[in-house]
Design a binder for these strands. Structure first.
Length: 314
DNA sequence: GCACAGGTAGATT
DNA sequence: AATCTACCTGTG
């Protein structure tokens, strides 16, 4: 018998900002990504592409990571891009916090918060699921897609993952999985009824039709990711189920387009309450956001979003 | 039981 | 062009 495999030792992530626990939680589980969960040992377990990684903070706030030995070398190269690909202290400093007291409050509440650089296709899938759903429910839908539509992850590390604290209601034992997400090519072969069985509801048709379109247009997704923001957004919005908000989320969280300014219910509330923009339409708020916050408006949006949700919990 | 949830698309005014 | 509504399903 070989010894049981174990995680690689935790090592620091070079270049990471010092983070408070709640900022790390907001970074990976604040609605940018839907594939992270807090384990019983107070580490964060996350998945993207075919990566699995655990994160933790030292008492001093230094970010450390660990991965399955078999994939650790690949993940060592990919993690800085995924987590910090959009992180530059200068871009936060360039926001108009000096003249905007509320923005200054939001920045001070979550120092080090940044925008993830996630795989484009996975981000599109996640936000196609997001319409009128709570984050926890989006995570359930995404997990079901991974659990049912891709092969069981053969990495022996999966048997070592214990997450009793985060296990939800017993009726859905397959909610948490270490499988990768299906690719759009794979999704194109899945009947819409199978997608509906993953609790997607009316979103199943969006995903099915989007998958068929992408399968019929090789290179379309990659070209969209590479295009400048206005063109990329227009392209995404031709997909069924992708409107202004979803397109902006995909481009912000999955393509590093920091000028994207998603306007959701939280931002509508925040702009009404903090900036007096009562009864403004989402399009008007988006225009205000872009002009007021500047070329990194999406970064400001994430701070406003995090702050408003934190306030609501209190 | 029923409103609501990180919206979008199509119909109606 | 602005406003209204249906769309699935889980949660409180």
């Amino acid at each position: 018998m070989r010894p049981a495999p174990d995680w690689t030792p935790f090592v620091p992530l070079p270049g990471a900002p010092v983070l408070a626990p709640r900022t790390l939680a907001e970074l990976v589980d604040g609605g940018q990504s839907f594939r992270w969960r807090r384990l019983a040992d107070d580490t964060w377990l996350g998945h993207w592409s075919d990566h699995i990684v655990r994160l933790r903070l030292t008492p001093a706030g230094a970010l450390e990571w660990s991965a399955p030995p078999a994939s650790a070398a690949r993940t060592a190269a990919a993690l800085p891009v995924y987590l910090l690909g959009n992180y530059t202290p200068a871009s936060v400093d360039a926001l108009p916090w000096r003249s905007d007291p509320h923005l200054a409050r939001c920045l001070a509440a979550f120092p080090g918060l940044t925008i993830l650089r996630q795989p484009f296709g996975e981000t599109l899938l996640g936000f196609l699921c997001s319409a009128t759903k709570q984050i926890i429910q989006i995570k359930q839908m995404i997990s079901l897609l991974a659990a049912r539509l891709t092969p069981v992850n053969p990495d022996p590390i999966c048997h070592l993952i214990s997450d009793k604290l985060s296990l939800p209601i017993g009726s859905k034992p397959d909610i948490f999985t270490e499988n990768r997400l299906p690719t759009w090519t794979e999704l194109a072969a899945v009947p819409e009824s199978d997608l509906r069985a993953c609790l997607l509801g009316f979103r199943a048709r969006y995903i099915h039709q989007t998958a068929r379109f992408i399968a019929d247009h090789p290179g379309w997704l990659e070209e969209s990711e590479a295009a400048p923001y206005p063109e990329a957004k227009a392209r995404l919005m031709t997909l069924p189920g992708v409107g202004e908000k979803v397109a902006d989320c995909v481009l912000l969280f999955g393509a590093g387009k920091l000028e994207a300014f998603p306007v959701d219910t939280w931002i509508i509330k925040a702009m009404a309450r903090r900036y007096g923009l009562d009864d403004w339409t989402p399009a008007q708020i988006a225009h205000f956001g872009r002009t007021h916050f500047g070329p990194h408006a999406g970064l400001a949006q994430q701070y406003l979003f995090a702050y408003e949700r934190a306030q609501a919990k209190e």
